[in-house]
Structures are given as structure tokens and as C-alpha cells.
């Protein structure tokens, strides 16, 4: 069975093609603004090319992410939590929880023994944009995103607001204006972002964090992962290609529709 999943986030669009559950092609591109449907099509085509198959061979295309309704060729739309749960369970069998920290959204879900999800929490207004904040600050400081915050000692006190990413950015810029080293500012940004994301994680009333999978674009940033683990007291499992997990989950959800 060949399935495809597209995860259109606020920053990046990810597409995967699965054959019998194995990833045979994937692609990623900037989501874009008003031309999201075009971007979705191009990203999907790139994933098909990587897989070496034609679109007609795909039995189901499913979309997730904030732009899931901007993928006109998707036959099924899946909410982000469902996609994350499916993706985590598929990439990391035995997972008990999944946390996703992307550019726009942070979510956490406790996976159930007899149902997909026992409990979940989504970031609300003040927590939105953790990943986007890190990317913006990395660009401004001229540090590659994957290495952002990784150079300075982790004991830098939180010097930027962890209450809101907008205020955090203002504080970080103030630090720069006062002459702080870029890596010091980066470490403070990482700390603030982790504290903010952890607040969503703490929203679960019955956490089941024995095997918590971390997915989303921020999972590639080692400093952020360390800071989030410290804030939450969890050692995350990070699958290869963590940023594609939502797309994988969407693709797997598509199989459900086929069985009907």
C-alpha cells in the first residue's frame, strides 16, 4: 500500500511517501504565503520524485498542519494531534506520549493503551510560535538554526521573557543592544523557548512520559532539546526525521479511510 502525507506548517511544508509503512520518499519546502496550494503541490511532487513513483500509484493522500485545508488534492484532513500520535507510534513503537514543538504550534498527547489518545494539550496564544522565534533569532544572530544556542554554557540565566515569544524577541534584541555576545543571547532564547514549550507539556493532568517522543522542527536543535528535557524532567526519544513525523502520521491516518 502506497500512502502519502503532507504536513503544512506555518513555516515549512513536509511531504512523505510510504510504501507498506516505510518511507520511500520525502521532501520539505518553505510553506509560503498566498501560494500555499502551489507549494503543497510542488513539495508533494518532489517527494514523489524522490520515491520514484507517479501520483497515480498513491492510494491516499492526507494532509495535516495548520495549512491542511490549503492542500486541495488531499483526500483526507487530519488534525495535528492525531497525526502526531500516529507518526510517533509508527516511528517509535511503544511510545507512551508524543510532544511536538514546531514553528507555530506546541502540542503534547498521552497515547492510550486501548485508544489512540488518552489526553492532549495544545499551545494557546502566548505559547504559539516557539520554533518561529528560534528561527527568527538564529537568522538575526547569523547562527545556523541547528546550532543555535549550542555554544554557550547552559547556565546562562533566563534573561529574556518566557511569558510570550513576542516579548522574548524584544528582550533578546535589548540584550544585543547592551553588548551581549550572540551565543549568550542565543542561550537565553533557548531557555525561554524551552520554558514556554514545557508549559504546554505540563498541561496534561495524567502524564504518561515513560517513552515520550519529541517531534517537530525544533527536535533538530540540540540545545533546545537539552533545555526542554531539563525543564520537563523527561528524556525524549527523537526519531530520525522527527520533523516529518506529522506527515508520516497523516499518511498512516489515510489508510483508515481506505479500509472503510
Amino acid at each position: 500500500m502506497i500512502l502519502a502525507g503532507i504536513d503544512m506548517g506555518i513555516e515549512a511544508t513536509k511531504a512523505v511517501v510510504l510504501r507498506d509503512g516505510a518511507i520511500i520518499g520525502r521532501a520539505k519546502a518553505s510553506t509560503g504565503g498566498t501560494d500555499r496550494p502551489i507549494q503543497a503541490r510542488q513539495t508533494y511532487d518532489a517527494a514523489l520524485a524522490a520515491a520514484g513513483i507517479a501520483a497515480i500509484e498513491v492510494e491516499a493522500v492526507s494532509a495535516t498542519g495548520i495549512g491542511k485545508y490549503d492542500v486541495p488534492f488531499a483526500g483526507r484532513r487530519v488534525t495535528e494531534v492525531i497525526a502526531a500520535a500516529h507518526g510517533a507510534g509508527h516511528l517509535c513503537p511503544g511510545a507512551t506520549a508524543v510532544m511536538s514543538v514546531g514553528a507555530g504550534e506546541t502540542l503534547i498527547a498521552a497515547l492510550g493503551a486501548d485508544r489512540l489518545i488518552d489526553e492532549y494539550a495544545l499551545s494557546q496564544k502566548c505559547i504559539a510560535g516557539v520554533g518561529l522565534f528560534l528561527r527568527t533569532m538564529a537568522d538575526r544572530l547569523g547562527i545556523p538554526l541547528d546550532l543555535f544556542g549550542d555554544g554557550e554554557a547552559a547556565c546562562v540565566p533566563t534573561a529574556v521573557s518566557d511569558g510570550c515569544m513576542v516579548f522574548a524577541e524584544l528582550d533578546a534584541l535589548s540584550m544585543l543592544n547592551r553588548g551581549a555576545e550572540p551565543q549568550t543571547v542565543a542561550a537565553a532564547c533557548i531557555r525561554a523557548a524551552a520554558v514556554r514549550a514545557a508549559n504546554t507539556g505540563f498541561d496534561l493532568t495524567v502524564p504518561n512520559d515513560t517513552r515520550t517522543v519529541l517531534i517537530g522542527g525544533t527536535a533538530k536543535n540540540r540545545a533546545f532539546v537539552r533545555a526542554l528535557e531539563a525543564a520537563m524532567g523527561i528524556a525524549f526519544i527523537i526519531p530520525a526525521g522527527a520533523e516529518y513525523a506529522g506527515a508520516v502520521g497523516a499518511a498512516i491516518s489515510g489508510a483508515k479511510g481506505l479500509r472503510k
Binding site: 488534525t79 500520535a85 485508544r115 489512540l116 496564544k125
Partner: peptide, 18 residues
Amino acid sequence: LDEKRLIDQLDTWMESLG
């Protein structure tokens, strides 16, 4: 109230229950 967010959450809630 973030209405779109709430709709997302309602969909997620229902879908998580099948």
C-alpha cells in the same frame, strides 16, 4: 477566544475518540 483554535481542538477531541 481563539475560535479557530477551539474548532481545531474540537476536531482533535472527536477524532481522538474515533
